[in-house]
Each structure stands twice: as structure tokens, then as C-alpha cells.
Design a protein around this nucleic acid. Structure first.
Lengths: 150, 150
DNA sequence: CCATTATAATTCGGAGTACGAACTAATTCA
DNA sequence: TGAATTAGTTCGTACTCCGAATTATAATGG
């Protein structure tokens, strides 16, 4: 929406409106996610962390890479979540240095609860899409995610 | 992708895959925006702030509402940006209490630069969409944004 | 085999973000 | 005019995040 009333920056003109929309939608979704997280006294990052741990049992460093955070940052994050009983550290695999992070029952329950709330909060934004549109949107998301940064 | 290998939370089953995708794409876009912001020593919020000030000259409180932040938080944010010469506070309108925030030349230049980088970074995610898909995506975004929180 | 180098994670200090509870100043209303 | 309201700020606190230094365990090569 904003692109239309601005002078152009690059030479990418035609993409601008689409990028604008993408950014706006992004902030909307972040707002929704943050609300849900806050409701459970979690930061957005912590909720994301729990979401990952629902399906995986990663080591600290791969978790940091996945989240795009420094290892040191993740340490603190995991500290606090562990102190709340949401997850556990345990010695990982054969390597005596590595640490695996796994979610507790309590953490999983919270993740489940939060996930449900997120789905219910976002579903309305998506509810009145027709089958074909859904399919297309899924495909687009797929393509967008496939080309993302390493 | 994750929804398929999990038990269902609510009763909203069919929406889950779509919501999952939406959330994944959201984090991807946030990562891109954060990288651009960091490159210019800005936080994501500050870049968003500059983005808003490109097109508007809001008062503190409406800005806070728009960003979903407390007034006190915004005060600090504006303090730091003002100290860097990116924006200015000036007495706003008839009300002797209110403060308008307006972007400086330097801030506008930075906003312009960052915007261009964002477009270039996100355009590839969107480049190979065909005209119809673009149209659909714009429409969907429109609908999603129309129904967002007050 | 052991010294060197690399890797996994943590700790620490510092800047920034964000909140909520005062607080000040200007405005509105009764 | 006096009592609420509203706009913004300040202050204290908790958390996020980073980068540099540290500890401990691997892996390598001479």
C-alpha cells in the first residue's frame, strides 16, 4: 500500500507492492504470536523454542543455528526455560561436550496449548480462503521457504 | 509441515498446515528484516519506526498504538533515534502536551536505503510468482490485514 | 603419544528493548 | 474552579542479544 505513494528506490518496481504486503502481514502475524506468548509469560523466541522442541531434540549449537542466535544467547534462554521446568538439558550422544535439549511434559503441554491458540488466532485470517487459494498459498510458502538462507 | 506429524490440538485440523506455513514464512521474513536492520545498526523495531515515518508524522501515542508498544517504551526508542539524528520531536498541533515525530533527511535516507535492501532481499522469494499468483497473494494479504486487531 | 587446534557450551559485561508504576504538565469536564 | 483525563516522560526491573573470554572435550598431525 505504501509503495504506491512513494518514489521508487531500486529498479524492482513491480515487486514493491507485494513486498510491502508481505512485510505488513509479517508484522501482523508477529503481533498475534507475541500476544499468545505473553499470555503464557513467554517471549516470542521462547515460544518458538518450545515449538521446535515439540518435534525435535536438538543440541544447543544446532538449535542456535536454527534460531539464528548466538550460542551464548541461547544458553541464557535455555537457562530460564529450564528453571521454569519447560525443558531439560541432558548430555548428548557420544560427544562429551554436547548437550541435548528436550522438552518436559509441562513444556509440551504449554507448547500444545500455545499452538492451539495460535491456530485459533490465525485461522480467521485464512478461514475464508477457498480450496484452490489454500493450495496456492501453501505452494507459494513452500517455494519461499525452500529458497531461504542457510 | 509439522502439523502433519502431530496429533491435533483444537478442532481446526484443516487450517493447521496453512497456519504452520504462515508462521514459518513469518520467521523467514523477520530474519531478513532483522539482517537488514542490523547492517545499519538498527533494531527491527527502529527500522519499522523509520518505515512508518517515511509516510506519516504521527504523535507519540498514535505511534505507540500502531507499533503495539507502551508509550514509555516508545519514549526510549525515540530518544535513541533522535540522539542519532534520525528523527525529531516537535510540539504537535494545538495540544500543548502532544509531540509529533518526524523523520530527518538523514533518517529518510537510511529508511530509503533499508527499504531498497528489504525489497531486494525479499523479491527473490516472490520473483517467480506468475501474475495471477501475485494478484491472489495481494488479495489474500489485503483480506488478512483488513481483519486485524484494532 | 602428546601438543596443537578445533569445537561445544558457558560465563560475563554491556547496550538495547520492553513493561508497569510513578510523575509532570496540559486539557477537559462537571 | 476543582476533579478527572490525557500526553509524555522517568525510573526500576527483567529479559534479549551480542561478542570476548573461559572451560572442557574432541580431533589432528608430527
Amino acid at each position: 500500500m505504501a509503495a504506491s505513494r512513494r518514489r521508487r528506490s531500486g529498479g524492482t518496481g513491480a515487486d514493491e507492492a507485494l513486498v510491502d504486503s508481505l512485510v505488513q502481514v509479517t508484522f501482523s502475524v508477529v503481533a498475534v504470536l507475541s500476544r499468545v506468548a505473553t499470555r503464557h509469560e513467554l517471549s516470542l523466541t521462547q515460544m518458538r523454542l518450545l515449538g521446535i522442541l515439540r518435534d525435535h531434540t536438538p543440541k544447543m549449537s544446532s538449535l542456535a543455528r536454527h534460531l539464528g542466535l548466538e550460542r551464548s544467547t541461547l544458553s541464557g534462554l535455555v537457562d530460564r526455560a529450564e528453571a521454569r521446568g519447560l525443558l531439560l538439558r541432558c548430555p548428548g550422544g557420544g560427544d562429551g561436550r554436547s548437550v541435548e535439549v528436550l522438552i518436559t511434559r509441562e513444556g509440551a503441554a504449554l507448547a500444545e496449548l500455545g499452538y492451539g491458540e495460535v491456530v485459533r488466532a490465525l485461522a480467521p485470517l485464512v478461514r475464508d480462503l477457498r480450496g484452490g487459494e489454500r493450495q496456492l498459498l501453501l505452494g507459494i510458502a513452500e517455494r519461499m521457504l525452500r529458497g531461504r538462507e542457510p
